[in-house]
Simulated scan of single mutants.
Amino acid sequence: MKVGKGKCSGTFGELVQGVLDQQPFLITLPIPVLKSEAIFIPDSIKSEINGFRSNTKALEACKKVFQWFGLSGGGFLQLHSNIPRGKGMASSSADLVAAMRAVADSFSIPLTDDIISWIASEIEPTDGVMFEGVVAFDYINGQHIESFGSLPPFGMIGIDIGGVIDTIQFNQQPKQYDRSDRHTFFEAYNLIKSGIKNMDLSQICMASTMSAKVNEKILPKPYFKEIERLTSICQGGIIVAHSGTVLGILFDPNISNLEEFLLHVSSFFYQTKTVPYYFYNNQIFN
């Protein structure tokens, strides 16, 4: 045993979220600079795993790892995260994954991403952040569907509309998708797959916008029309947290009218008095 360390990236919403046939799925938008980091200090004498009360779910995940691998003893869990809570940025999922990885590192056990996803989904609906790159993931059943690879270079500007969303409660509500919505999800899924394969950001932007518009019927966002107008200026895509409070614009940082676009964005933030998130090449500027 040793002091174990684990980490996991957060997200900025999802590229796509909906259903394929009857299977719920999301396609991740990992943002490595948003991350949760965990430290697990093992204790062979104690039989309990302790930590701060705010980390209840992560502590439960650690206990499940102990049960899965038949580990004995206990320990203390510490978590540090820069991911905002209740915003749809995978803060809870990242905590669970980082905590489980810290336990695995402490005991040198073969904890796979699939095992992590199964355990996490027993605790709550979870994001696919345990897998590398952009993936399609069944967030209800903890099932990895498909890996797509990495996104081409992108810029992203986002806002938080305020408040928080209880993910567990939200996902217990039935989603009323019609036939047209289901066709949209199928098309968006394949656009993401093609866009990443061909490093074509425009296809990815098209897919994210399609999914965001369907989600307006489920969880409408203030400023959506304004973000849609700004997106048209940069020929980008709308990004939303389908069960959260953030939305934004995905765009090619090499567009010819970048200065014009950023001027419009600055004007929007000044008029609405909202606080932006700026992401570029996996760096964040607030």
Rank of each mutant, 00 (worst) to 15 (best):
I239F: 01
S266F: 07
G237I: 10
L250D: 03
F261Q: 02
T231F: 05
F251L: 06
L250N: 05
L263S: 14
E228V: 00
H242K: 07
S256Y: 05
I249Q: 06
L247E: 07
G236N: 11
V265E: 04
P220M: 00
E226A: 12
L262C: 06
T245P: 06
G236M: 12
G244T: 08
Y270D: 15
E259T: 09
P222Q: 10
I233R: 08
F268S: 13
S243N: 12
Y270N: 14
F268T: 10
K225G: 06
R229H: 09
K225P: 00
F261T: 02
D252V: 04
P220A: 01
L247K: 01
F224R: 05
S243G: 02
I238Y: 12
A241P: 12
V240Y: 04
H242Y: 12
R229G: 00
H264F: 14
T231S: 11
I255F: 09
F224I: 08
E260D: 08
E259V: 05
K221P: 02
L219M: 07
L230V: 02
I239C: 05
Q235H: 15
D252I: 03
N257V: 05
G244Q: 09
T245A: 08
L247F: 01
P222L: 07
F268K: 12
G236Q: 13
S232K: 14
S256Q: 12
F251Y: 15
S232H: 11
A241M: 10
L262H: 06
E259G: 00
Y223V: 07
I249C: 07
L263F: 12
S232Y: 04
G248Q: 03
Q271D: 15
E226D: 15
V265S: 07
N257P: 06
L230N: 02
S243H: 05
E226Q: 15
F251A: 04
P222I: 11
V240D: 00
T245L: 09
C234K: 03
E259C: 00
I227F: 08
V240S: 08
I233L: 13
I238P: 06
H242R: 08
I238W: 10
G244R: 06
G248E: 05
I239S: 04
F269Y: 14
E226V: 00
L258W: 00
T231P: 00
H264C: 11
E228K: 06
A241N: 11
E228I: 01
F251Q: 06
V246M: 04
N257G: 04
F269W: 07
